[in-house]
Amino acid sequence: MCTAAGGPAAFDVLLSVLRDITPVVEALPPDAALADVTGSTRYFGRDAAGLGALIRVRALARYDVDCTVGVAANPLLARMAAHDGPPGAVRAVGGGPGEAAAFLDGKPVGALHGVGPKTARTLCDYGLDTVDRLAAAPLPTVQRLLGARLGRLLRDRAHGADPTPVSPNAPARSVGADHRFDRPELDPGRRHRALLALAAELGLRLRADDQVARGLTLTVRYADRSATTRTRALPEPTAHTPALATAAYALHDALRLQRARVTAVALRAEDLTGAAGTGRQLTFDPRAENIRRAESVTDRIAARWPGLLVGPASLAGLPRRSA
């Protein structure tokens, strides 16, 4: 598992460096990728951790992009190793007897891939607040709490088991933006405001490229370094800021975060296609047409004066950061 901070350019660099090492690379937008280096260790004469160090050196030396590398026997442990500490390192989980259990021991249950805030709260309410306690719990107990399928899946993961293969893919045609809060944000109103800023930025970029999106992905990152990602198809292909913002709000509100300590939110417009080949639903609402006309005006202003931020008044003073 490799992650790189720095936006789309850094993500492209990460994929390029990984594919120089192995053809088995699974892109995980916006900033991560899984790579199976089983077939590369003999060719390069290095073990997996050594290849992780080589990846970091190449990315830094050739492109001035730092990345974090997690090395383990399966994707679950590699993901957790990559997020187990500050960015910019190679962290390995050994494959020997007991090494996975030692790595997982004492970690919050929310650190397991697939455990969102709601599931974590359910487990914590019953005292299963760490990975080792979840691993020690009887399977029937966990299944009564979470359901048969999810209970078995998460208990297996608590034992460090993950049979999921690395599936080579091409990065989807998408564009994204993210916002990192100065401190963990509890106020849903401020999170909505950040999402509106991201929707406005995505809409502007899509319209500038004459593209529309068929789907939208929201990623929410928390103070415990866990994250939740949700995707939904849009009712119709669009680059219209209000439509993107409405979908972002719906994704956010469906998570029912309540008192979650959110450190960052990211939006990614998915499955892009040319705007010329798509239609849109006509409306008799004059306000909708006025908003579209206003968008075209602000787009021309932004194109002429790139340093000038033009958009909803509620975004005044809120920084925008691309992903």
Rank of each mutant, 00 (worst) to 15 (best):
A233C: 12
H240P: 03
L272I: 11
A135Y: 01
A302G: 08
I301T: 12
A81F: 04
T241D: 09
R173S: 15
V212Q: 04
H192D: 10
D20S: 10
T228A: 14
A33G: 04
R46F: 13
G70R: 01
V131Y: 02
G45T: 08
R261K: 12
A92Y: 01
V24T: 04
G203P: 00
C124D: 12
R230L: 10
R56S: 02
G70K: 01
T241C: 05
A213Q: 06
L206N: 02
D162P: 04
A200V: 03
V142D: 04
F11Q: 00
T38W: 07
V310R: 03
E185C: 07
V24A: 11
L318S: 08
D84A: 07
A89L: 07
A32C: 07
G116V: 07
G307N: 12
A148Q: 15
T229S: 09
L77I: 12
T263M: 08
G95E: 14
A33F: 04
L76E: 00
L123V: 00
G127F: 00
G70L: 02
R221C: 12
A247E: 09
R152Q: 15
L309R: 15
T283Y: 12
D31E: 07
L216R: 06
E295N: 06
L146F: 05
N169R: 15
V297G: 05
P286C: 03
R320W: 13
L14M: 06
T130H: 00
G110L: 09
F11W: 05
S167L: 14
D66F: 08
E295Y: 05
E295T: 03
G95F: 10
E26I: 02
G45L: 04
F284C: 12
V166I: 05
R42H: 10
L195A: 07
Y249Q: 09
A135V: 02
D178A: 13
E185K: 03
A136F: 12
G279A: 12
P75E: 04
V265H: 03
D36E: 13
T229D: 11
R287E: 14
D182F: 06
A59T: 06
L14F: 03
E99L: 11
D178L: 13
R190H: 10
R149T: 13
R292D: 11
H252I: 07
A148V: 15
G307V: 11
L153W: 04
A316W: 13
V71H: 10
L198F: 00
N290D: 09
